[in-house]
Nucleic acid binder design. Structure first.
Length: 522
RNA sequence: GCUCGCGUGGUGUAGCUCGGCCCAUCAUGGUGGGUUUUCAUCCCGCUGACUCGGGUUCGAAUCCCGACGCGAGCACCA
């Protein structure tokens, strides 16, 4: 190599190229660094044998943050023709109690986002017998012990790297206490099961970590049948093994959890799944995603419900008309880095606009209508013809019939306030008399052909206008903006583009008959 | 305090395993222009980054050491 470099200096690179060409041409073939598309490869993955899981706490529907877990896991499953388990980790009825309705909501959110149902659905609360059995196994095999210390007391042992006296309890004694825990004889806080690791481990988080604790609260699914409940590290570890999970992809805040669980796996002689992590994500507009906080805010009346358009829940986004494919691409593009990142909604919106634009029919919506009587006696037209989609003429046209003489048109108050001539889109240049007459505001057509660059505004003839409200967020407030929508027969759920305003979805009809739309994004 | 992880343009991201193809990819944003009877979509141009300091090497975004910064865990939450 040194010789080669010396040669390069003395004879030039071209000289070396010639030598290589003569002696071993394949050395010149460049191994091109290709840009990787999508997710990276899963380590030790065999097509058809991959099992992944998504394990939320069912205390509310899924948020945009959870979407990452759903998308990444289902995408890996798609890449390797594997399975995804939806597992409800509902083992805490006290701090973050399960919401009985959340199970169905989450399943629905998952299916919408993944485009398919989960391959298996599990509820930890229905698997309690299994977990308790493994806890007993850990105790009898001396891998765990009943610890009666308070949290604070144990903290001292953890910091000083010394063993708690409970640790040396005999197996018989452990089993007796275990029975009392399960009987309800020992009250919450009175005892906890700890896994025997090693108190001299350099990572304090791993020192004799707690695996199960006592909770006497009424669990919404299984009531008070169980007194002892596993903590995440134990429940998840046991279940992942039993379900044959091959790969775990989760937040990096769970890195120590992996290490704790690996220690348990070693005791049981199991092999821990391959584990990948992602970092923390914030979306500028929403900050973090706290389901419990949203729940409180909804209860306090700050939001109308889980699908309030201001909320970052999947159902709120879905209600607004976001495309599941765009949301998937959004998370796949962010990838699997362990960096803590903060992304703006505009990135998602950009992907989403590309996804919905081609299919969104154009409609006119006049938000703050001002009525003008327009003299059209000088023109011959009997109707205005507008494309349903400017780039897809095959989708057909919209036709607005025009009466003879004078027609009544609606334009936005903001457009009215400027005095220059303006062009009613796809119709004509008009002049407005800004003096109110007994017949109201009046105006006249200047010409119908396009001439110059008269500012174009959107409008509606009153015979094509129906009352409507557009739900949108303005400065954190949910505003129901009243206006007039072009008469149409699109069904609810259709994403439309309101010309000059942005995308919206048709949602239903108000009590007073007005058509309701929800703004998607601009 | 202990332990772990992460630092590439405004925001994300590829490249890092195995140093040369990297005066660094793609997207988004910003900006200028084109198409367009929408402030949409589409197209084109411009913009802008390897945290810092050492070391190894002919050669470092890539390997090593250190510093600094950010984040997480050390819960009877998930």
């Amino acid at each position: 190599m040194n010789d080669a470099n010396a040669l390069a200096v003395s004879h030039g690179l071209e000289h070396i190229r010639q030598i290589l060409l003569d002696e071993s041409p394949d050395a010149l073939e460049k191994k091109t660094k290709e840009r990787r598309e999508g997710l990276p490869e899963l380590p030790n993955a065999t097509t058809g044998k991959v099992v992944l899981r998504f394990a939320p706490n069912p205390n509310g529907p899924l948020s945009l943050g959870h979407a990452r877990g759903v998308v990444i896991n289902t995408e890996f499953a798609r890449m390797y023709d594997g399975e995804v388990i939806l597992r409800f980790d509902d083992t805490d009825a006290v701090v973050k109690p399960p919401d009985p309705e959340a199970y169905a909501l989450i399943e629905e959110d998952f299916t919408w986002l993944a485009g398919r149902a989960p391959d298996r659905i599990l509820r930890a609360s229905e698997r309690m017998e299994v977990y308790l059995e493994y806890a007993a196994k850990a105790l009898t095999e001396n891998h765990a012990y009943v610890c009666e210390c308070t949290g604070d007391a144990f903290k001292e042992f953890r910091i000083s790297m010394s063993e708690c006296p409970c640790r040396s309890r005999s197996t018989e004694n452990n089993m007796a206490l275990w029975s009392q825990m399960n009987d309800g004889a020992i009250l919450p806080g009175g005892a906890v099961i700890r896994i025997k690791t090693d108190m001299s481990l350099s990572n304090p988080a791993l020192r004799d970590w707690p695996a199960l604790r006592i909770q006497h609260a009424d669990h919404p699914m299984v009531a008070d049948r169980y007194k002892v409940w596993p903590l995440l590290d134990f429940q998840s570890a046991v279940e992942d093994h039993l379900q044959g999970v091959t790969h775990i992809v989760r937040g990096k805040d769970l890195m120590d959890s992996t290490r704790k669980q690996t220690l348990l796996y070693e005791k049981f002689g199991w092999n821990y799944p391959e584990t990948l992590y992602w970092g923390r994500v914030k979306v500028f507009e929403f900050g973090g995603f706290s389901t419990s906080q949203m729940k409180l805010d909804i209860a306090a009346g700050q939001y109308t419900g889980w699908n309030d358009p201001r909320l970052p829940t999947i159902r709120a986004l879905r209600r607004r008309g976001y495309d599941a494919g765009a949301m998937r691409k959004f998370w796949i593009d962010l990838g699997l880095t362990q960096k803590d990142i903060s992304v703006p909604m505009s990135t998602l919106n950009s992907l989403n606009a590309k996804a919905v634009d081609a299919e969104a029919p154009r409609l006119s919506f006049v938000r703050n209508p001002r009525s003008i009587n327009l003299d059209i006696s000088e023109i011959e037209l009997t109707k205005v013809t507008l494309p349903i989609h400017p780039e897809h003429p095959e989708k057909g046209v919209r036709e607005w019939p025009l009466e003879e003489g004078t027609i009544n048109v609606k334009i936005d108050r903001d457009d009215f306030s400027t005095h220059e001539p303006k062009r009613l889109k796809d119709f004509a240049d008009i002049g407005i008399h800004h003096e109110k007459t007994v017949k109201g505001w009046t105006g006249e057509v200047i010409r119908t052909e396009r001439h110059g660059n008269t500012p174009i505004i959107h409008w509606l003839p009153s015979n094509m206008a129906q009352p409507a409200v557009l739900l949108l967020e303005e400065e954190g407030e949910l505003v129901a903006a009243a206006g007039l929508l072009e008469v149409n027969d699109y069904s609810d759920g259709t994403v439309v583009q309101l010309e000059r305003m942005g995308f919206a979805i048709l949602e239903g009809v108000e009590a007073d008959g007005a058509r309701r739309l929800v703004q998607l994004h601009s």
